[in-house]
């Protein structure tokens, strides 16, 4: 019998990790991916507020930081719904956790890819919506900075909810019930920073606390996601 050519046995974990990040970013932007829909939701939901509360510039300026943060947060929750579930349902999650990156690598790569593909664009778009919401000029820089510091926590905490509900049919609602209360500190400090900047107060303490929340989310979020994912794959 003639042997087929065998590929080289040469495994690179780092290569596999970045390949997984690229794969997820690619899939998020591919047809049917979550990113475009999430950004669309962000744009539409924010532009509903002037209809809801009236177009007075002072009113909009007052609520702008909160509205932008809350909607960014909700958009994040919506996109997280499928973070692990899509791969769980088509069986590719089995491959991924058995790849050289393992459970820890899968969680880190997927959270990173989610942040890059979905949450980061929200932070980039927020200033434009800030203009539409008549956000005070002093708030723009801090709005972007607070979103950059705070959104990793959103992706990480959300990853816990997504991993816990991965095997639950129509788990999206349950996931929001679990995740939204855990988002409260991020929201408080994020909006606090922008409000401080708008009111010409030093936003640094709020940003520092926001950073602390994100750091804690890295530790607790990754640990809990790995545990939850292992449990779901049993």
């Amino acid at each position: 019998m003639v042997m087929t050519h065998l590929p080289k046995i040469n495994v690179s974990s780092a290569g596999a990790f970045w390949a997984l990040v690229r794969r997820d970013v690619h899939l998020a932007w591919a047809q049917g991916g979550a990113s475009t829909l999430t950004i669309g939701f962000f744009l539409i939901a924010v532009s509903l507020f002037p209809f809801g509360v009236g177009p007075e510039p002072q009113v909009l300026a007052r609520i702008a930081p909160g509205v932008l943060w809350v909607i960014a947060l909700l958009a994040c929750v919506i996109s997280l719904d499928r973070l692990y579930q899509a791969d769980f349902e088509d069986g590719s999650l089995d491959d991924l956790v058995l790849s050289p990156v393992g459970f820890l690598g899968v969680v880190c790569a997927k959270v990173l890819a989610h942040w890059l593909s979905t949450t980061l664009p929200l932070a980039v778009l927020a200033p434009f919506l800030g203009v539409m919401m008549n956000l005070n000029a002093d708030g723009f820089v801090v709005l972007i900075v607070s979103l950059l510091i705070g959104t990793p926590a959103l992706s990480l905490i959300g990853s816990v909810g997504a991993a816990l509900t991965v095997a639950v049919r129509r788990g999206g609602v349950l996931m929001s019930l679990i995740v939204l209360p855990l988002y409260v500190p991020t929201l408080i400090f994020g909006v606090g920073a922008v409000d401080a900047a708008v009111n010409l107060v030093d936003p640094l303490p709020h940003l520092a606390l926001l950073g602390a929340v994100s750091l804690m989310a890295i530790v607790a979020g990754i640990w809990a996601s790995v545990m939850a994912l292992k449990l779901a794959m049993e």
Binding site: V160, L164, A167, L182, A220, A224, M227, L231, A232, E234
Partner: peptide
């Protein structure tokens, strides 16, 4: 059993 362990993970996260 899976339900209980999933809920346990959430309970521990919430200790914060």
């Amino acid at each position: 059993e899976k339900a209980g362990r999933a809920a346990s993970i959430l309970a521990l996260v919430g200790v914060v």
